[in-house]
Amino acid sequence: MLSVQNVTKTFGHHTALSELTLEVASGETVCLLGANGAGKTTTINLLLGFSAPDQGVVRVDGRDPIKESIKTRQALAYIPENVALYPSLSGLENLAYFDRLSGHKRSSAELKALLLDVGLQERDITRPVSAYSKGMRQKVGLAIAFAKKAKALLLDEPMSGLDPKAASDFTQRLTTFNDAGCAVLIATHDIFRAKESASRIGIMKAGRLVDMIDPTGLDAGRIEQIYLQHMHADVAS
């Protein structure tokens, strides 16, 4: 579903991605772990068509995100670190708006059900988003992504700043996407949540994918050990 083949991307003299190759299949969740500047967000921007690769090929459901930007983005849902919502509108109104823009026209009851499904309390559904915590906003972001019925979900540090329970809830909800056959790519620093949600974990450093591990049978401590080995190697080199 998501395919990045030998992609290199530079910004001026800085190489953000170097010959990156990555595949995410439908129903699979891949987490990209890495320090700031490792190239995680650049990878997501390439898939969204926000940026064009200097070399290599990027495809989303077989489409070129630059040449077919509208159709590509229609196939994607994107949740950034801080979900951008309209503060004077309620969670329900925000969801209804993005739902309409995605070409759907769900009833109010359906939209409410979606918000309840992602864990928003009923009393909060009609409150203005300006009064929401970050966790609540992320839930609305998830509901928007659900509503879009996207083929792939891209998340950029979605759990940053969430308390452990909210982060755990969020991770739980993500499994629903996999169940629906959606390809999920998460850029994160959070090894514990990556272990919890990912089918595969990619470790990135300096624009390269240095390792791709299967977390099955590994605990978070072991994953952290592998990650740090790569990071130290980076420092040593």
């Binding site: 196939a75 951008a84 879009k148």
Partner: peptide, 14 residues
């Protein structure tokens, strides 16, 4: 400033 313009761009509407 709110980031909603980027959200609109990401949603895939002309």
């Amino acid at each position: 400033e709110r980031g909603t313009l980027r959200a609109l761009a990401a949603i895939g509407i002309p």
